[in-house]
Amino acid sequence: MLPFSFEWVWDAGHIVFMGGLWYSLSILGMGMTYCVIKTIIDINSNDQTENDHH
């Protein structure tokens, strides 16, 4: 899974397969991170607007 395990070989099979895996995981990870950060920003900006009204 990682280049540290001893059966790892830098061949086309590993690069394509693991490349695909890490690419997908990155998209999922980045997507979720984006959602969480955006949510935190949204909440803060909502608080801001609410405070402005007061």
Binding site: I27, L28, G31, Y34, C35, K38, T39, D42, I43
Partner: peptide
């Protein structure tokens, strides 16, 4: 907000 934001990027997840 989280639900709303996840809906917005759902196409990316669906494509993956």
């Amino acid at each position: 907000h989280l639900g709303h934001n996840m809906h917005k990027v759902m196409a990316v997840f669906a494509a993956t």
